[in-house]
Design a protein around this nucleic acid. Structure first.
Lengths: 341, 341
DNA sequence: GTGAAAGCGCTAACAC
DNA sequence: GTGTTAGCGCTTTCAC
């Protein structure tokens, strides 16, 4: 027996039906103060009968608080991004927060991306920025001060709360491994962004420099694995390539396919390694040597940190995890074939 | 020269600085009514100076409208889901809407999922439900009536606005193709959900029945490709399997790997086909015969339809697209080896 | 065109 | 414990 069944019930309707005042209903809902059991029961009954759901807008406006957090990302469907977002969402959900996603495209520091602006208008409790690419970096700069924010990325940076995966360290280890196998140097296929150097590239360069190996020019792939295939074909032409470190596993798969197109076998003729430990990396033939990145956990840690910032408690504002090397079949000692080529 | 730099500027601050009334500022922002050019300029200047951003909460409360749409999904990081979400987000963004994501886990029809409840509390303009699995189906049933909603799925259903990809039709075509190659029947590895029959399974069964072929029992995989690998190993044991239709490409990759573990080559010994045209399907060796599903476009169409429902205009409330067959290397005519097995 | 006044649905003091 | 009184920051009549 709802009243005006077209309108959704308000707290005043509930109060009337339960024979109490509006604040009492609010108290029952929030648990902020104790309410006599019988009233509480009547209120709950009224809520159920009317199908009442509180208006988040009104709540935010009155309290100044919000249970929405925004995730700002330059990308949502790539494996790593999707997993990070999933981790943030899981953390948020378990604490009763809702997640809004804003996909930013512009790398322009001076003009705020419209998606960002819209999302930021939503009375938000805090922001998680996926700072893996230029749009993410630009977005981070544009978050108004005063808004709780945490950055998630692969490289540490001062002055901001963040959860990171130490990609440089892992990339260095991976390159070291290839060098230890006997390769005289390692080629590198980068994933976007191409603007600044990412942790993966930095670690690769560091390992080569440390070993006194030549640092070959890098190649840039897009997110599309077929760009890796094209690069693989090119790589197959040059006779001095014996080991290739790809910015992620999907590109590695493309590169391996491109190498195969050029008649080269992995790891017999060329070793290829990836990054991320994509679920398919193990299914590939040959299975791909890579580095395991727990992206979902990264997202979860990012949310925890954000929660600390929001609550202003003493939770640490920084969390770093080192990805671990996963040795599989796609890398081996160099064969003589290539050196003879 | 902001006032209280700790507080974010309100419309009243802007009005004061510009020497106009609050409603005038509102008019400038919304364009709802014409404002004298000089006042408009002063208002815009004040907005810029104060860095004013309107409060969405207050706007919603006062107007009853909202520029947030909710996407309800049982999953966010699987390729297909992630792409659909990306499509919805793109459509939403281009129309100035923000997207909130609610991940539902429960398949219980009687109790509303808490994530759903939180998201629905957000004064939402409409809801897009990804109805590909039991949690999605359950969520759809729990959306309060009166809320604009569109379902996105692989199977048509009456009485609701929806965007679909005709998966049954495509699966039938794919199975027909395998049969035409000379296979006496086709085995099927299903993706979740296992509860009800999905379009892919329906189409497969239809094709077999139509051809008078035996309908072998199905096997159930999880979203993890390694579950496909385990099934592939089992399949390698039985000598009467010559063709396998997998619920998606990732499972197909796992199955191919499992078959290889069992010493069987694809397509020489067994033909394997997938579904979705995952970006890696083409990179795989052998490249995978599959069906192309334009998920991002599906998401975009879903949003368009939702927009029509929200605006209550005459946009069609249903949109269907048929995925198209992509013939590659992983399926071929059966060899004598297996039949002799 | 523009301002004054009212009110969206809630929470936050404050009395009692 | 519980009700009363004020707003939160906007949009919306409605006069002028």
């Amino acid at each position: 027996m709802t009243l005006d069944s077209n309108r959704t019930a308000t707290m005043a309707d509930v109060a009337r039906l339960a024979g109490v005042s509006v604040p009492t209903v609010s108290r029952v809902l929030s648990g902020a103060a104790r309410v006599k059991p019988d009233k509480e029961a009547r209120v709950n009954a009224a809520i159920a009968e009317l199908g009442f759901r509180p208006s988040a807008a009104a709540r935010n406006l009155a309290s100044g608080r919000s249970d929405v957090i925004a995730v700002i990302a330059g990308n949502t469907s790539q494996y790593g991004y999707a997993e990070v977002i999933r981790g943030v969402e899981e953390g948020a959900r378990s604490e009763g927060y809702t997640v809004v996603i804003a996909v930013v495209e512009s790398s322009d520091d001076t003009r705020m991306d419209s998606a960002l602006a819209t999302a930021l208008g939503q009375s938000i409790a805090g922001v998680v920025v996926l700072k893996f690419d230029p749009p993410g970096v630009a977005a981070l700069r544009q978050i108004p001060s005063g808004v709780p924010v945490v950055a998630i990325s692969g490289v540490r940076e001062a002055g901001i709360a963040q959860a990171v995966l130490d990609e440089a360290r892992a990339a260095e280890e991976l390159t070291d491994y290839l060098l230890a196998l006997g390769h005289s140097t390692v080629h590198h296929v980068r994933i976007p962004p191409s603007r600044r150097e990412d942790g993966r590239t930095t670690g690769w360069r560091r390992a080569l420099t440390k070993a006194g190996a030549v640092v070959p020019p890098t190649q840039d792939a897009t997110w599309d694995p077929s760009s890796g295939r094209a690069i693989g074909r090119e790589l197959a032409e040059s006779t001095n390539v014996t080991a290739v470190f790809c910015g992620n596993d999907e590109i590695a798969m493309g590169v391996i396919r491109g190498l195969a197109d050029g008649g080269l076998r992995v790891p017999h003729d060329v070793s290829v390694v990836g990054f991320d430990n994509h679920p398919l990396a193990e299914m590939w033939s040959p299975s791909i040597t890579t580095v395991d990145q727990d992206f979902a956990d990264l997202g979860r840690r990012g949310f925890e940190i954000l929660l600390g910032v929001i609550r202003d408690d003493s939770t640490p504002r920084y969390s770093s995890e080192r990805p671990r090397l996963i040795i599989r079949e796609s890398a081996a000692a160099p064969s003589s074939r290539r050196r003879a080529g």
